[in-house]
Design a protein around this nucleic acid. Structure first.
Length: 119
DNA sequence: CTGATGACTATAG
DNA sequence: CCTATAGCCATCA
């Protein structure tokens, strides 16, 4: 194999697939996505996959934040403002630039993971 | 090939 | 709250 869990492209596709399942108004962490996608210690890989994605990849990238519940872009940067704006539009609250993960973290059920949102 | 980098994270002090 | 350290691993100079 070219990697611990499939080719680079296959793993990236799995990451996008999981991210597309994050429901409106919820967030997930990089590490959480890596786990759900079956990657080992691949939080960094998730970030790379996201950086590699562009307008062509239609996924809710803004619903992915770091383990501290903050946005991983420099405060004041353009990407930071966009991600934060999108989240606030979905009703996600920021306190001191931080999201309360206990409240907004996506907690998928087994059914949800196996069957997807199922419309 | 080597070393630095980064949309990361956990742990320790 | 902070900084430091160590894992992580594809990518880049």
């Amino acid at each position: 194999m070219s990697g611990p869990a499939g080719s680079e492209g296959a793993r990236r596709a799995r990451v996008y697939e999981v991210i597309s399942m994050i429901p409106f108004g919820s967030v997930a962490t990089y590490g959480q996505i890596a786990d759900l996608a079956g990657l080992s210690a691949g939080a960094r890989f998730v970030g790379r996959a996201l950086r590699h994605s562009g307008p062509g990849v239609d996924i809710p990238w803004h619903r992915v934040v770091n383990a501290r519940g903050t946005i991983s872009f420099p405060v004041g940067s353009e990407p930071y403002a966009e991600q934060r704006g999108r989240l606030e539009e979905e009703g996600v609250a920021f306190l001191n630039g931080r999201i309360d993960l206990r409240r907004y973290r996506w907690q998928p059920s087994l059914d949800e993971l196996l069957w997807g949102p199922m419309a």
